[in-house]
Nucleic acid binder design. Structure first.
Length: 269
DNA sequence: CTGAGATCCTGTCTGC
DNA sequence: TGCAGACAGGATCTCA
């Protein structure tokens, strides 16, 4: 489901569990993308949460001597409930229970995962990730240095989490539209100036999306279930055959690496 | 090593 | 309305 802004929005909502003690963990269905460690409850129940943060699209919960890593996959959500609430939704696979509240992991497609580890930085999901798009490290200069040796198309390149994290299928199309770069271009043909544009608009678009509550998604809701979240204005994604907002062109939809790509053939070069 | 395609899974929407 | 088929926000894996 979520790209970086949606994960960031979820993070902000669940930060209220910082400095709280996790009473217990209940796994209703361990068959996620990876099997959930059977000893998870033993390892982290009655532990105090030191901090909660985000790396790429992963939420990381620091429990002092263990880290909980949560990925929402394509369809995962977290929601906060009162501990006494006893209604369930289909696909509520895990429950993190606190004194007064509980945090529920729901994921229909089960492409997400929950891991427990001693050292998150060494974890196989984390240790090969590229730079954060909103960090100083992610610049046109950095991009240009890694892009030169890549023969894949530029859209696939910026979605590859080894090159830069957090950019998913929606924002990849949006970023390339803003940068006026055709998504089918071979990565190594991208110029230094174009790398600057990609870096600039990645930051710009992701920041704006975070500001409005991080939702491009039809079924995305904040962990508090709060209303009033605005949809970010999409320029190309899901706008096939509609008018380009920049020029008089028409938005096209193509399939790249089995994913839908949207772009304007007239103003993206 | 790289890059392309298949794959995991359920829900929703479209067209016949 | 029923049902088959396409498609969906991710990312790993398998194979050439």
């Amino acid at each position: 489901m979520p790209e970086l802004p949606e994960v960031e929005t979820t993070l902000q909502a669940i930060k209220l569990f910082e400095n709280k003690t996790l009473s217990s963990v209940k796994i209703n269905n361990p068959n996620l993308r990876w099997l959930v460690d059977k000893s998870i409850n033993k390892k982290i129940s009655n532990k105090k949460i030191v901090s909660i943060f985000r790396r790429a699209k992963y939420l990381i919960i620091d429990l002092c001597d263990h880290y909980l890593i949560i990925h929402l996959g394509m369809s995962g959500t977290l929601r906060i409930m009162n501990r006494s609430d006893n209604y369930f939704k289909k696909h509520d696979h895990a429950e993190f229970i606190f004194k007064n509240k509980k945090l529920i992991y729901n994921d229909p497609r089960r492409f997400g995962s929950i891991h427990i580890t001693d050292s998150y930085k060494d974890h196989f999901l984390i240790n090969k990730l590229g730079p954060e798009p909103l960090s100083r490290e992610f610049s046109g200069k950095y991009l240009y240095s890694v892009i030169k040796s890549s023969n894949t198309n530029i859209k696939n390149f910026i979605m590859n989490q080894k090159n830069v994290v957090g950019i998913g299928n929606i924002y990849a199309s949006e970023i390339l539209f803003k940068a006026s770069i055709k998504p089918t271009r071979v990565a190594k043909s991208i110029s230094m100036h174009e790398c600057d544009l990609i870096a600039k608009y990645s930051k710009n678009i992701l920041k704006r999306a975070i500001k409005v509550g991080g939702t491009t998604l039809k079924d995305f809701f904040s962990a508090e279930g709060a209303q009033g979240y605005f949809k970010i204005q999409l320029n190309v994604y899901d706008r096939a055959d509609q008018k380009c907002k920049k020029c008089k062109g028409v938005i096209e939809k193509i399939i790249q690496n089995q994913r839908a790509t949207y772009f304007c053939d007239a103003c993206q070069n």
